Measured scan of single mutants.
Amino acid sequence: QKTCLICGDEASGCHYGALTCGSCKVFFKRAAEGKQKYLCASRNDCTIDKFRRKNCPSCRLRKCYEAGMTLGARKL
């Protein structure tokens, strides 16, 4: 079983350049394409896991970029 690099849930494949679950794939697409700016209410070090991935979109998006996700990457 492969694990999502963002939240640790079961990965569905390589999306936008990183091994992710469906939830993180859709989140990244919407967040990266959108005009909304996300700000962390804490210290930009929130725990992003399967159960808390929706708590801080700022840290989740940062983790996506750190994992190498880009909109230009093709699905592998």
Rank of each mutant, 00 (worst) to 15 (best):
L39K: 15
L39R: 13
N44Y: 04
T70I: 04
K37Y: 06
T20P: 02
F27Y: 02
K35Q: 13
N55L: 12
N55Q: 10
Q1K: 15
H15T: 14
G8T: 04
R30M: 12
C7D: 00
A18C: 09
Y16H: 04
G72E: 15
A41W: 06
Y38S: 08
C40Y: 00
Q1C: 12
F27L: 01
C24E: 00
N44E: 12
A32F: 06
N44Q: 11
K50Y: 08
Q36W: 05
F27W: 03
T47P: 13
C24A: 00
D9W: 04
T20Q: 01
G17L: 02
L5Y: 07
K50L: 12
L71V: 09
N44I: 03
N55E: 03
S12Q: 14
A73G: 10
L39Y: 14
G17W: 02
D9G: 06
T20F: 15
G13Q: 05
A31K: 02
L71N: 08
N55P: 09
T3Y: 13
K37Q: 15
A41L: 11
L39N: 13
R74C: 15
G22K: 08
C40H: 01
N44L: 05
C7V: 00
A18L: 07
Y16I: 01
G22A: 12
L71H: 07
A32T: 15
C14M: 09
C21G: 00
I48H: 03
K37R: 11
K63F: 04
C56S: 01
C64G: 02
Q1F: 15
L5N: 11
K63S: 05
K25V: 11
K63C: 07
A41I: 04
K29P: 04
A18F: 02
S23F: 08
P57F: 12
T3M: 10
S12D: 12
C7L: 01
T47F: 09
G13H: 06
L5F: 09
S23V: 02
P57W: 13
T20W: 02
D9Q: 10
G68S: 06
K35N: 09
A32P: 02
K35C: 13
C21R: 01
C24H: 01
G13S: 12
N44F: 07
I6C: 04
N55S: 06
R74S: 12
R30Q: 12
N55A: 15
N55V: 07
R30I: 10
C14P: 11
C4Y: 01
A18E: 02
A41V: 13
Q36K: 13
R74Y: 07
L19H: 11
L19Y: 09
V26I: 14
E33G: 14
C7K: 00
R52V: 14
L5A: 08
D49Y: 02
A31C: 10
F27P: 02
G22S: 11
R30V: 10
G72Y: 10
C56M: 02
N44G: 14
K35H: 11
A32G: 13
D49S: 07
T47S: 12
K50T: 10
T3E: 07
A73V: 11
K50V: 10
L71R: 05
H15S: 05
G13R: 06
G13N: 06
A32K: 06
L71D: 06
G8D: 14
Y65T: 04
K25Q: 13
R30E: 14
P57N: 10
Q1T: 15
R74E: 15
S12I: 09
L19P: 08
K35A: 09
S58Q: 08
A31N: 07
C24Y: 00
Q36V: 15
T47E: 11
C21E: 02
R30C: 11
K50W: 05
C14Y: 12
Y65P: 00
K37H: 15
S12W: 06
K63Y: 02
T3L: 12
E33W: 05
F27H: 01
P57R: 09
L39W: 10
L5G: 06
